[in-house]
């Protein structure tokens, strides 16, 4: 959730005037408005797709497609202009990245700085898998897996005791 003007921290009076002034960050421009939309639906769809990948610089994790911020509006218009000029999606994205850096990409690009980030889900799943595997192997080695040899009658009775309510 985006709370642009949420003020955290103890009061800093001199800053408050600035806070009021920075209302421009909340100056309404409204996420995608009809005036900026392209008449060609295919191009407009591509523009929406690109906009969803780009971060609104003055928001938290919000794409420029979602943002009311003034700058986001300008960037949306810019993206549409690039598409009209014949850019591919990637070229249009690169155009913005050249000016604002990787920071504008909501989906972090794969490069040495982000190797660890992108590898982390695999590493974590791998580690978890190893741990679970180890747990069962250890249990097996310690020979605690097999319940005592029971007759069918006993097994049934045991099940009733263990699963009385089934929960």
């Amino acid at each position: 959730m985006i709370r642009l003007l949420r003020l955290n921290g103890p009061l800093m009076l001199p800053m408050l005037a600035l806070v009021m002034a920075l209302a421009f960050y909340a100056r309404p421009a409204y996420a995608v408005n009809p005036d900026e939309m392209l008449s060609d639906p295919a191009l407009e769809a591509r523009a929406r797709e690109i906009s969803e990948e780009l971060r609104c610089l003055v928001c938290q994790n919000q794409s420029i497609d979602d943002s009311d911020a003034d700058l986001a509006h300008d960037l949306r218009v810019l993206v549409r202009e690039r598409l009209l000029a014949g850019d591919t999606n990637q070229q249009a994205i690169n155009y913005i990245v050249a000016r604002y850096g990787d920071y504008v990409l909501l989906n972090p690009p794969l490069k040495p700085d982000t190797y660890i980030l992108w590898a982390s889900p695999f590493i974590l799943v791998g580690l978890a898998g190893l741990a679970v595997f180890g747990f069962y192997r250890r249990k097996k080695r310690e020979g605690r897996t097999t319940p005592a040899n029971l007759t069918d009658q006993e097994r049934k009775r045991l099940n009733e005791i263990l699963n009385p309510s089934g929960d």
Partner: peptide, 11 residues
């Protein structure tokens, strides 16, 4: 605001 965008201005 286009020149500002070319300069990477965000605030």
């Amino acid at each position: 605001g286009r020149t500002a965008i070319d300069f990477g201005v965000y605030g």
